[in-house]
């Protein structure tokens, strides 16, 4: 219990939040953590969403989408980080040590869930509905933008949520390759045998991950208000299969 009191006292110090000396403080660490994570997911989404839409709509390259999804599930995130760390140091990539290694690893990790969910969501749109739309004279472009994307929106958003939660979790490991973020407290706590830093960092990282998850839950409800109707609820239930690996 003494430890918890010490952690509480650590959280109560202003320098813990605002930083002192070379320690930038929790606020800066949270900012680093989130801006890195969100940028990695945003870049991945920007690149991968069009590909997922294309594969889902045309049903071409389906095998590639499925393979990337499975591959991403089996690949250890820690291993990806190791490889990107080595490559960035071998190439002497400029910038803060570990920044690009972490960013690249997170970017790569964000790809499979977004791709899989976008492709599955678009592909899952009822074939009869599309047939009817085509019969009504809608162009392929209209079918995609006015029918398939809105209907697949809940799944697509779920994919982005999955990617974001995984990326926020994995960003913690960035501290192992000398980058910052909230993982810094855990890695430093480990290295120095400082349980206060270790526990404080663990609390912060866990809270950030849970807040991200909850925030996306709210976002999903906003993105898909129709989900509240009874019929759609069945659709939502079937999404429970979309659980990704923990990171």
């Amino acid at each position: 219990m003494d430890q918890l009191t010490a952690v509480w006292e650590w959280f109560m110090m202003e320098s813990t939040w605002r930083g002192s000396g070379i320690d930038p403080g929790i606020l800066v660490r949270v900012y680093e953590h989130m801006s890195m994570s969100l940028q990695a997911v945003a870049l991945a989404a920007l690149l991968v969403l069009p590909i997922g839409l294309y594969i889902g709509h045309t049903r071409r390259w389906e095998f590639a989408a499925i393979s990337i999804g499975n591959f991403g599930r089996a690949l250890p995130s820690f291993g990806i980080l190791g490889i990107t760390f080595f490559i960035t140091t071998a190439l002497d990539v400029p910038g803060i040590l570990g920044f690009w290694a972490t960013f690249t690893a997170l970017f790569l990790l964000a790809i499979p869930p977004i791709l899989t969910n976008t492709y599955v969501g678009i592909k899952g749109v009822d074939a009869d509905t599309i047939e009817a739309a085509r019969g009504m004279g809608m162009t392929e472009r209209e079918i995609l933008t006015r029918l398939e994307i809105p209907l697949a929106a809940p799944l697509i958003v779920a994919g982005i949520r999955l990617a974001t939660v995984q990326v926020v979790a994995t960003a913690t490991l960035g501290a192992v390759v000398a980058w910052g973020g909230l993982g810094r407290y855990i890695v430093d706590g480990l290295a120095r045998g400082n349980d206060v830093l270790l526990l404080g960092g663990a609390i912060l990282v866990a809270l950030l991950a849970i807040v991200t998850e909850v925030a996306f839950g709210v976002l999903e409800r906003i993105a898909a208000p129709r989900l509240t109707s009874q019929k759609k609820r069945v659709v939502a239930g079937s999404r429970s299969g979309q659980l990704g690996p923990a990171a």
């Binding site: 490991l173 270790l198 663990a202 849970i210 923990a246």
Partner: peptide
Amino acid sequence: GILYTIPSLALFAFLLP
């Protein structure tokens, strides 16, 4: 579900002390 959401390094860090 909350347990699942907690990043692994944080969960290990909770247990270590």
